[in-house]
């Protein structure tokens, strides 16, 4: 009996993890169930019942917390030697099976969301599950939205790394300019005639050292600010010209 309940639990765990709000879960094969998701502080997030009349869409996913749990209860046909499998986007994430020697057809329990995922992820995912054995088979599918911030998770780090590498590679893939063969061929005659590359232009002779004009140190010169007239330089008064030398007539000598 206990193994049969375990079977049903697996079926409903699949449905509960993928269940959308009421009327948003596909479940076939005669299985029924309901589930409620809780966050890590055991605050209720959402309840769902399967199967529902309306198909589940990405617009009304079943909300769950990666660190939270899903409480489930379900019933189904008796299945012996069953095997179950849960897939996310077609990729199996968990599977198992049991002989169900106790012939259980109902179950109840609590599933940790993190047990069905290899690492923390967020977003909306299409989850499907199935169970089959001797006596029947059930399958279900729905959308699950895992709550929380994606920053710092492994997919977020991988995505940012891919973008950084891609942008760097994209810059390296831009065209680069390179000399053409015709351009190099045009320079070949010059090299052949001169037995080498054209000579470099003559280097200018170094300038001789400055020669002092006078021994006196240069006088500082005051400049007016930009836009103002230069100050007038006050010339020192010119000394009177020296008296002319006395002529021979003036000294009283005879002419």
């Amino acid at each position: 009996m206990r193994r049969g309940l375990c079977l049903i639990a697996i079926v409903f765990a699949t449905v509960a993890l993928s269940a959308a709000p009421a009327g948003a879960v596909n479940l076939t094969g005669g299985c029924q169930g309901q589930g409620t998701s809780f966050d890590k502080d055991h605050n209720q997030i959402m309840s769902a019942t399967a199967p529902s009349a309306e198909p589940g869409t990405s617009g009304n996913p079943f909300l769950a917390d990666y660190d939270g749990t899903v409480e489930y209860a379900g019933t189904g046909p008796l299945m012996l030697d069953h095997h179950w499998e849960i897939k996310v986007f077609g990729i199996p994430v968990k599977s198992g099976g049991a002989p169900n020697g106790s012939h259980q057809t109902a179950t109840i329990g609590v599933a940790d969301v993190s047990d069905y995922l290899p690492f923390k992820i967020t977003g909306v995912y299409y989850v499907s599950g199935e169970i089959h054995g001797d006596g029947g088979a059930c399958s279900g599918n729905a959308y699950v939205k895992l709550l929380g911030s994606p920053v710092g998770t492994i997919p977020w780090i991988v995505a940012v790394g891919l973008i950084v590498v891609g942008v760097a590679l994209g810059y390296a893939s831009l065209p680069r300019a390179k000399p053409t063969a015709t351009g190099l061929a045009a320079l070949e005659p010059v090299f052949v005639s001169s037995a080498g590359p054209p000579p470099a232009p003559a280097i200018a002779q170094p300038m001789p050292p400055p020669v002092p004009i006078s021994d006196e140190p240069p006088t500082p010169r005051e400049h007016a600010p930009f836009g103002e007239p230069e100050p007038t330089v006050q010339q020192p008064p010119t000394p009177p010209p020296p008296p002319p030398p006395p002529s021979p007539r003036d000294d009283g000598s005879p002419a």
Binding site: W156, V158, A159, G161, L162, I163, V165, L169, G170, A172
Partner: peptide, 15 residues
């Protein structure tokens, strides 16, 4: 380069 950037953008849109 485009494949890398596209994969990164797709993963970001998903998460």
């Amino acid at each position: 380069a485009g494949v890398f950037v596209g994969l990164g953008v797709a993963i970001l849109l998903l998460i």
